[in-house]
Structure formats: structure tokens, C-alpha cells
């Protein structure tokens, strides 16, 4: 028998929703080394979903060893302590190593492309903002610009706020990759 409760205890929808909306805990950046095997990403993503974690960003790329890939994944506001998930991740056979990166000890970057409406006078203003953020204009048409920005998530988001008023047509972000500071490997 599962836990069907009794006829007396009714569950209120409000209570359920409140519980579902609870977001505690800090943002986590997990750096995961995995064997390059079929299905490994699905296994990882499935684990987070089952535990009620929402994956905010996910990047996968090769490492210096072609058998091994690096997954960098950020999750925000965990419902449950993250270590239950990291322990479960360790149990995946194709997962080799996991680091829950502390923000202070980590260099994290992402790349973003912004397509901004920029006609007439607005064009030079956008380019000024772009300069300040050390962005690069990578495509120009008569009515729009594409700007490439790399940096921390904060920087990318600040740039977004600056150019949005000009008319942000489209934006794409890679999600963070992160590497630990100092001599030792991530």
C-alpha cells in the first residue's frame, strides 16, 4: 500500500502549490566528467528531473581525452539538498567525477549572441554599450546588429538589460562553463 492517507485528511491545492513553489538553497554549478557513451546525458538529465531539480543551463563539450566529455550544469534554487543528487549522479556508471564548484574558487564564463534593432542614431549608442562590455559586433545589416558577448552570467545579463530598450530581437546564450581556480584540476 502506498500512502493513500485516510478519508479525513484532505489536501488543499494551495498547500500543494506552495510546497511546489518552494525554492531554497543557492545556485549550484556542477562540473561533471563523463565517459563518452550513448545515453549518458539522458541519464544525467533524468536524475535531476526525478528529484525536482530544474536544470538552468547545460553545456557539453569534449575534453583533451576523446573518450571523456565535460558536462557543466547549473541548477538554481534546489527543492532538496543537492547532495542527494550528486550522490545519485556518482552512481551513474558513466560518470567519472563531479565537482560542485564554489563561486569564489571558480572562473565561469558564457557566450551570448544578441540581435539588436539598431537604426540611425541608436546604432552608435548600441555600439558604445557594446564597447563598454567588450562585446564584438559580428554581423551588421541596415536595421540590426549582432553582438557577441562573453563573460560571467551577471555581465551577460547586465548587457541584456542595457540593449533591451533598443529593441532586442533575439538572444542566445550557451550557458556557463566553469573551471576551478589554481593549479589543481577541476
Amino acid at each position: 500500500m502506498g500512502d493513500p492517507g485516510t478519508k479525513q485528511d484532505l489536501l488543499s491545492l494551495e498547500d500543494l502549490e506552495a510546497a511546489g513553489a518552494l525554492r531554497t538553497g543557492r545556485k549550484h554549478v556542477l562540473s561533471i566528467l563523463v565517459e563518452n557513451k550513448p545515453g549518458v546525458l539522458t541519464r544525467i538529465a533524468g536524475l535531476f528531473a526525478r528529484r525536482g531539480f530544474n536544470i538552468e543551463t547545460l553545456t557539453v563539450g569534449p575534453t583533451d581525452d576523446d573518450q571523456i566529455s565535460r558536462v557543466t550544469l547549473t541548477v538554481d534554487g534546489a527543492l532538496h539538498p543537492i547532495d542527494q543528487v550528486t550522490k545519485q549522479l556518482h552512481k551513474l556508471i558513466n560518470v567519472l567525477k563531479i565537482r560542485d564548484l564554489e563561486p569564489e574558487g571558480t572562473v565561469a564564463r558564457e557566450l551570448a549572441l544578441f540581435k539588436v534593432a539598431a537604426e540611425g542614431a541608436a546604432r552608435s549608442e548600441v555600439m558604445q554599450v557594446c564597447d563598454i562590455f567588450r562585446g564584438k559586433v559580428v554581423d551588421v545589416t541596415r536595421r540590426s546588429l549582432i553582438v557577441e558577448v562573453t563573460g560571467t552570467t551577471d555581465k551577460v545579463e547586465a548587457f541584456e538589460r542595457m540593449v533591451r530598450p533598443f529593441g532586442l530581437i533575439e538572444m542566445m546564450r550557451t550557458g556557463e562553463i566553469a573551471i576551478s581556480r589554481g593549479r589543481s584540476e577541476t
Binding site: P38, G39, T42, R43, G46, R50, I93
Partner: peptide, 16 residues
Amino acid sequence: VVGVTMPIVKHSFMIQ
């Protein structure tokens, strides 16, 4: 079947 059973196996091998 590998997809269906992913949450309920210790591990699975999809032969390629």
C-alpha cells in the same frame, strides 16, 4: 527499452 527503463536500472547497455 533502454529509455523506458532508465530510471529503474542499475545500468543499461544499448549495443551499437
